[in-house]
Amino acid sequence: MAQERSDDDLMLAVAVARRHYEQGQAKTDIAEALGISRFKVARLLDLALESGVVRIEIVEPEPRGGGLADELMDRFGLTRCAVVPMSSTAPEVRGEVGAAAARLLGDTVREGDVLGLPWSRTVHDMVYALESLPKVPIVQLSGALATTREDSSAVDLVRRAGRIAGGGRQVFFAPLLMPDAAAAHAVRRDAAVSDTLASAGDVTVAMVGVGAWGPGGSTIYDMLDEECRNEITDQGVVGEAVGTCFDADGRLVTTCLSERLIALGPEQLRDIPQVIAIAHGPGKVAAVRAAMAGGLISGLVTTHDTARTLLG
């Protein structure tokens, strides 16, 4: 008798599952139509899942997936692109963008590559979403920002990614921004700093953030004194990546900031074969568009609304 009841329940579970999953009927409507309680409907749906009558599959989009990603690649000549299907103002956007960047990086890096990582909020989110990497060496591309709200520095990011990849790492302990050119020159003479920054020339893939030149759009902008900030603005700078400043056409601009940075140089950044930017939000559009126009980045991870604005 128990087997008969089980078979009957399973057949009823099939009927309930078809109504709920295929026809979109609510549980209360199914209960009324079949003359059973809504609690039994819920139990039958659970039985359908447990018995394999219903199988739920979650399919993540490919790193390049989506028409917007393809359009961005075609329009701006990108080699890699991922568009997260959500607004840049969504509460969970940072985690989702970081996870998409981690997937895209995993799809891009191969054994034989050298991965370069600076500090940025978006790179932080990506590194903390990483689950696996090929066995590649990782090079730190910038010094640390002393006033960040994240619980990591550039050294922490490279170390964490290095543990995942297992291919070795090069790090140095120094701030990103020094008070003047003389202090920066002294720091660059340190062997660990000079050797690591020289190794930036070996980097084949870099993940970077793009800062918009304005309040809240760039961590570096917010750290600078007003005089230097205004001078850079007057030079037509619209954005920066790892401290490298560029104008609306993507041309590199030498500024009062240039000699104060402990980071790879602008030409080193330009020479990296694949530079993938992680950036989103309306305030970043002009900077991202300029970076693409100037060939400073070859890949992009962004959000749905940002992608539409870039294409518009």
Rank of each mutant, 00 (worst) to 15 (best):
V123P: 03
D7T: 13
D271F: 03
R19C: 14
L115C: 01
T302P: 02
V53Q: 14
L68F: 03
C81Q: 03
D8A: 14
G209D: 06
C256D: 14
V210G: 05
G35Y: 09
G281H: 12
I262R: 03
R149Q: 13
T28R: 15
R169F: 08
Q25D: 15
L10G: 09
V41C: 10
G166I: 09
R289M: 02
A293Y: 00
D190P: 04
R43Q: 11
Q140R: 00
R75T: 15
I36V: 14
R163I: 01
R229P: 03
Q170E: 12
G95R: 11
S51P: 02
G143T: 06
G239V: 04
A100W: 07
N230Q: 15
T255Y: 01
R64D: 14
C245F: 01
L47H: 09
A102D: 15
L45Q: 07
V139Q: 13
C81N: 02
G216S: 02
T244M: 09
E62N: 03
L300S: 05
A206Q: 06
I36P: 11
I272L: 14
L104T: 06
R289G: 10
G95T: 05
D247M: 05
D113G: 04
G201Q: 10
D107P: 03
G116Y: 00
G312W: 09
P137W: 07
R229D: 04
G65V: 00
V109D: 06
L261K: 06
A154S: 15
M223H: 15
S51A: 13
R229M: 02
V84M: 11
G283V: 09
A2I: 02
A69Q: 04
S152V: 04
A290D: 03
S132H: 13
L311D: 11
R169Q: 13
V237H: 08
D9R: 12
M86F: 10
R121W: 11
V288A: 00
L224G: 02
A307K: 05
I297N: 07
G77K: 03
D305S: 09
D8H: 14
E92A: 11
I297G: 06
R18Q: 13
A31I: 08
V288P: 01
H304K: 12
I164P: 05
F246A: 04
R260T: 00
R169S: 03
A31C: 13
A102H: 10
T306P: 12
A248Q: 12
M178I: 00
T196F: 11
L10H: 11
T302R: 07
A31G: 15
A248Y: 10
G35N: 12
E22G: 05
M292L: 14
G299E: 03
G35L: 05
A146M: 09
G67S: 12
G250T: 02
A182E: 15
A181F: 13
V171E: 07
G216V: 00
V114Q: 11
S194V: 05
